[in-house]
Amino acid sequence: MNPAKAEYYGAALNSFVLAFGEANGVVQKILADAGVERIDPESWYDYDWASSIYYRIGEQVGRAAVMAVGRKMIEAAVFPPGIDSVQKVLMSLGAAFKLNTRGGDVGDILCTIEDDYSATIVRTQRGLCPFNIGIIEGCCARYGVKPLIEHGAGGCQDDGAPTCTYHVNW
């Protein structure tokens, strides 16, 4: 591994296959456009190449599909052990991101628990905003919670801002 080369773990990238189903024509087209037949969950992929798959989903299928892939990420990605609540899973997002990426500067995810039923999440990692929202929804759903997620002031990465801030209530 080249320490300067950012990479994305195949198990996490495979979330889009889980969201649509392996035989789905959209999945097959996106994989073909990316130059592969399948994603190996045990392999590491170039971070920018992997991210481009999520952008293709947004362009070809739309925002709701990107959010669905983010929700499936929770089933596919590696998370730290000992997580047993909404608060802990949201607090673990930065650590989980680091378990599923390596090398290079791809950003971070910072969570502050505001009280028993709310948190603020600041995401500096590169990626689509709807994907981030889907991940937060998936984290909460894991514990039977449907969150209210509001995008904070200060801009959106989809529009060129350096971060996205989310206020999450459950």
Rank of each mutant, 00 (worst) to 15 (best):
M67R: 13
V78M: 13
V89M: 11
G82N: 04
I83F: 07
I74M: 13
E75K: 11
G70K: 02
G82P: 06
K88E: 15
V86G: 07
V69E: 03
Q87L: 06
S85G: 11
A76D: 03
V86K: 07
K72H: 15
A77Y: 08
M67H: 09
A64G: 11
P81L: 08
D84C: 06
P80D: 12
I83Y: 05
M73L: 14
A77Q: 07
M73V: 15
I74L: 14
P81N: 10
V78D: 11
V78L: 14
I83T: 02
G82M: 00
V86N: 08
V89C: 08
A64S: 12
Q60D: 12
P80Y: 11
A77C: 08
I74V: 15
V66P: 00
R63I: 14
M73E: 15
V78F: 12
A68F: 02
I83E: 04
G70A: 03
G82R: 00
M67S: 13
V69F: 01
Q60C: 09
Q87I: 13
P81T: 15
R63E: 15
R71G: 01
A65P: 03
G62W: 00
K88V: 14
E75R: 07
D84H: 08
M67L: 14
F79Q: 02
F79N: 03
I74H: 05
V69Y: 01
V69H: 02
A77I: 06
F79D: 03
V66C: 01
A64R: 09
V66Y: 05
I74G: 06
R63M: 12
V66E: 00
E75L: 11
R63P: 00
V86Q: 06
V66D: 02
A68K: 06
S85I: 09
V89L: 11
A64F: 10
A77H: 05
I83Q: 02
M67P: 03
P81R: 10
A68C: 04
V61R: 08
D84S: 10
R63C: 07
R63H: 11
M67K: 12
A64K: 10
V61T: 09
V78G: 04
V61H: 04
I74N: 01
M67V: 12
A68V: 05
V89P: 03
V89I: 15
M73F: 14
V66T: 07
M67D: 08
V86F: 07
I83H: 04
K72A: 15
F79T: 00
A64M: 09
I74R: 03
P80V: 14
S85V: 11
R71C: 03
K88W: 05
P81G: 10
M73D: 13
V61C: 10
D84Y: 05
I74Q: 05
V78P: 04
V69A: 04
G70N: 04
D84V: 09
